[in-house]
């Protein structure tokens, strides 16, 4: 037959003993780390890999254009393309957003994003972007002319 001690007979903290003191100190240190750990990074911008910040999904959509790419042909006619059409993709890939190489952080990155469009647009045409790009501070309105001529579309 098994012996089952009463609940009160086990694990009841013994006042004044060393293990209780250690537990109280550990709990206090953990509590401080839990509540104040994110503060340096999130309030003062002093980031550390050892102090977890809780900024989930805050970077998703950063560097993604929202607007239209316009191809102006030699005869003055214009054709509109969505960002997905310009990048020649059906959707943004279901990968970690920061692994998407075509994100835009500078105007010269537009050429890289819209490289498929630039490759098919007639040499005598010009391509511009009208819209905005995602940043941590919201959408940044932009109008960029001659995207394809701005650079070779290479990202550093």
């Amino acid at each position: 037959m098994t012996h089952v001690p009463t609940p009160g007979a086990v694990s009841r903290p013994q006042s004044g003993n060393l293990s209780m003191l250690a537990r109280h100190i550990a709990f206090g240190l953990f509590a401080v780390l839990i509540y104040l750990g994110p503060a340096p990074g999130q309030i003062f911008g002093s980031h550390s890999p050892w102090l977890r910040e809780w900024v989930m999904f805050s970077g998703v959509g950063v560097g993604i254009p929202n607007g239209r790419f316009v191809v102006r042909h030699e005869d003055g006619a214009e054709t509109m393309h969505t960002p997905l059409e310009a990048a020649d993709i059906e959707q943004y890939p279901l990968i970690l957003h920061y692994l998407f190489e075509n994100r835009i952080f500078a105007t010269e990155h537009f050429a890289h994003f819209a490289a498929p469009l630039c490759a098919t647009a007639p040499e005598t045409s010009s391509v511009r972007f009208e819209g905005s790009v995602g940043t941590r501070q919201g959408w940044q309105a932009l109008k960029i002319e001659n995207i394809c001529a701005s650079s070779e579309g290479k990202k550093p």
Partner: peptide, 14 residues
């Protein structure tokens, strides 16, 4: 705006 950015990334073409 930030939610819209997340949705643009997640839902464009979907």
């Amino acid at each position: 705006q930030r939610l819209e950015q997340i949705f643009v990334w997640s839902y464009s073409g979907r």
